[in-house]
Simulated scan of single mutants.
Amino acid sequence: MDSIPANRRLWNQISSAYQHEHDPQIGAAPRLWGMYSIPDEHLNALGDVTGKRVLELGCGAGQWSGALVAEGADVVGIDLSEAQLAAAARAMGAARYPLVQGAAEHLPFADDSFDLVFCDFGGLSWAPPHLAVPQAARVLRRGGRLVFNVASPWFEACYDETAARVTTTLQKDYFGLNTIAEDDGAISYQLTYGGWVRVLRGAGLVIDDLIEPRPDAATPNGYNETDPPDWGHRWPAELLWVTHKP
């Protein structure tokens, strides 16, 4: 299934509204992960990026990329959406970096090009993982790391489409998630825990850690309504995978 045209169209349509709503949260401070904006310093997932060549898959408006450039990384941001890249270009200050229009499942970079490939609900949520993960592994240098944050399958399985919120009741089959229908024919992707392990190992990557970011009970979800409000404190809402290429 080729989801590129519909996903590109969706993000071009919603980019402005998305950035207006979420930029204050995403860009509130450097290195904030996921729906609950948990600081990387609490999770220790990304590590020191000084002097490293870094690729962000699905850079959006560049909140992450700009922060890593400021830390001394040599960053390239890639995104499927021209509108998202335009937002990143507008947001650039002194910390400038290249922006590339492209898809995570067809990376336009040479083998062994990067020390770190990462995303936070970016390319590995909006591209088929069985295609995008091998591409990320291909462009990594030996010893390079793939670090990415995606929704937990339990979060998606408990999402009540009618009520438009996450509840404590299973709504979908765990083993039937795979593709998630979004607006206007767009598709996002979801794997089981075992599915991620197989895709990562199949691409030749070593899994170093699986972090399940746990917000404080009072921390709100910045993207979804949850019932109860402390859902993410009680159950894993996200999976933060830390891997490397041996």
Rank of each mutant, 00 (worst) to 15 (best):
L131V: 05
V100L: 09
G144C: 00
L240S: 05
L239A: 08
Y36E: 00
P236W: 03
F114D: 04
I4W: 10
T219N: 08
T168G: 06
V117M: 04
A137N: 03
I211C: 12
R96P: 06
G143N: 07
Y223H: 15
G60E: 01
M92S: 12
F118V: 01
E56T: 04
W33P: 00
A163C: 07
A67K: 08
S125P: 13
V147S: 10
R53M: 09
L170F: 00
L210A: 03
R214N: 10
Q190S: 04
A83G: 00
R141V: 14
E41L: 12
T169R: 15
Q63G: 11
L240N: 05
D209E: 06
L107K: 07
P128A: 07
A29N: 10
G77D: 01
T179W: 09
F175Q: 04
L55Y: 02
D120L: 11
C59A: 04
K52G: 04
A91M: 09
H22T: 14
V139A: 03
V54H: 02
V117P: 01
R198N: 14
W196C: 07
D74M: 11
R96M: 11
P215E: 02
D216I: 13
A89M: 11
R9C: 10
S125A: 15
T168V: 12
V75P: 00
Y193K: 14
A163D: 15
G58K: 03
I180A: 02
R96I: 11
N44V: 12
P98A: 12
L99E: 04
V76T: 07
G60D: 03
D120W: 12
S113W: 07
G60Q: 02
D183A: 15
L46I: 10
A89W: 07
V197D: 04
L210G: 04
R142H: 10
A237L: 08
G47Q: 09
A89T: 15
E156F: 08
V197Q: 10
R53K: 11
L146Y: 01
A157N: 01
G176Q: 13
E182W: 06
S81Q: 06
L210C: 05
A17R: 13
T167Y: 00
A67M: 05
R90S: 15
D230Y: 09
G176W: 03
G204N: 13
N221T: 10
C119D: 11
W11F: 11
A104E: 02
G62A: 05
E71P: 05
R8E: 13
Y193R: 14
D48G: 04
M35D: 14
Q63R: 11
G185V: 03
K52W: 02
H130M: 12
R201P: 10
V117A: 03
A127M: 07
D227I: 14
P5F: 13
L10C: 02
R96S: 13
G185C: 05
V100G: 08
A86T: 13
G204P: 09
Y189P: 00
I187N: 04
P24Q: 05
G62P: 00
L80M: 06
V150R: 00
E156K: 02
A151S: 14
L107Q: 05
S3F: 11
A203M: 05
G232R: 01
A237V: 07
D48N: 05
T169L: 14
E21I: 14
A91L: 10
Y193G: 15
W33Q: 02
A73N: 06
E161W: 01
H106A: 14
